[in-house]
Nucleic acid binder design. Structure first.
Lengths: 236, 236
DNA sequence: CGGATTGTTGAGGATACTCAAGTTAGGTGG
DNA sequence: CCACCTAACTTGAGTATCCTCAACAATCCG
């Protein structure tokens, strides 16, 4: 049976790439191996940050809820990603909730180990910094989009980003290889599921995408990019 | 004459706090000292990232422009902040433009030194990570606000954030101690200067703030927070 | 098969944007 | 020191975008 833990693929994660084999073995040996089923939470917003994690297989969604109960998706976690690093943010609680979108496997270390890890394995510190740098750039891109672009363009950028982070090339186009609901796309784009539905319906009619319940196939990423960048008018 | 460089205050910056005196002296000795006048740019978006910086005195505004020429303010840099760390973002160019809002003094090191610094002074690596963590949280807050809040609430959060980052307590309230235009507030809030003007006019009539050309005094931060959090209806 | 979750589509309306015109403040040079 | 010029700001009117509300349809799962 496939447990989701595969040494070879884990070894290839960028964050471990600069470690020697023996260092890697040490790091893995001190990790707890956890499985989460689709729909289950790895940690909850506001909960005490006991561990930090690396996703080995599966997909997670990290969300934040506002005081009024509105939800925003902070990001989608893909294999190889470091997450739940509250310590690096100077926090004792998790700022968001991480939910498995599909059955997932992950490695966990006690938060108390964070500083020791960074000191003992500088290459992991560099990797952690890169992770944070990537997220910062993504957050800034989304901010720029939210501040300046109309909904259709934001949705185009959102689905393209999903395709880049977690797409699988098929003959017909790029398949988003985990269940994405319209609600998810809305929370990533800063709009409502109604508006997303209308936009995707229009795109589907024009042959740009092919939808379905929690499914999405980008049939014409190039044209979507043109829409996202405002180089061609949208379809609404 | 005051050059803007003051050893005592520089020494007290969080990022240097864990260095020994001799380490601190070494770090400072290898830095170039630069002055920028109000309105001048420290670096431009897309320019080669030759240096990274610490702001010693003054205020900077970091912006990104979209392909269509729309501008978004990424953040306001205050003394003690590390900025221009393209290397940590895995880039060779600067992702934004840093402009001095008032006459400013800064320390600069060649980008090539970045990795060496992180290795030689782990406490600076930790500091850099904290810096990125703070920014990431701020970016997520703004993202959440842009996605879920109406304009008036976003503007309230924006001016409160400015007050926290760069406010000076006065008898009458919290003064934003650098020139902020309505356009700046608009670019931080994701709206237009027209809307900001209308909102601030209404707030001023209610005694919440006192405006002026590139001036802002928060007379009732508590009430602004209630508006920002949606606990009391806005004034528009 | 039935219940629940997810998605579709329409109508109406509010928020905030665009366009437009004018006012105020501040700096600059004569 | 005053006049002018520009940048910052104000205010109004009209309107587009997109949200809310609502009802219904499709799909999935047990």
């Amino acid at each position: 049976m496939n447990t989701g833990f595969d040494r070879t693929s884990t070894r290839s994660f960028e964050i471990f790439s600069a470690l020697s084999d023996s260092q890697f073995d040490n790091v893995i040996a001190t990790a707890a191996h956890r499985h989460v089923k689709a729909g289950e939470a790895v940690f909850e917003q506001g909960g005490e940050a006991k561990s930090f994690f690396v996703l080995v297989s599966g997909r997670l969604r990290v969300t934040q809820v506002t005081a009024e109960g509105q939800q925003v998706i902070v990001r989608i976690v893909v294999p190889g990603d470091l997450f739940g690093i509250a310590k690096a943010l100077q926090r004792n609680d998790y700022p968001g909730t991480a939910t498995a979108l599909v059955d997932s496997a992950l490695l966990a270390w006690p938060t108390a180990r964070w500083s020791g890890f960074m000191a003992a394995y500088p290459s992991m510190a560099v990797g952690a910094m890169q992770t944070m740098g990537d997220r910062l750039q993504e957050a800034h891109s989304r901010l720029r989009e939210m501040a300046t672009e109309e909904v259709e363009r934001r949705v185009a950028h959102t689905v393209l980003r999903l395709g880049n982070q977690s797409g699988r090339k098929e003959a017909a186009g790029v398949r988003i290889d985990f269940p994405v609901s319209k609600q998810d796309i809305a929370e990533l784009s800063g709009t409502t599921l109604h508006t997303v539905s209308r936009i995707l319906t229009a795109w589907e009619a024009a042959g740009l995408v092919q939808g379905g319940r929690q499914k999405l196939l980008l049939k014409n990423p190039h044209r979507l990019l043109l829409i996202g960048d405002g180089l061609v008018p949208g379809l609404l």
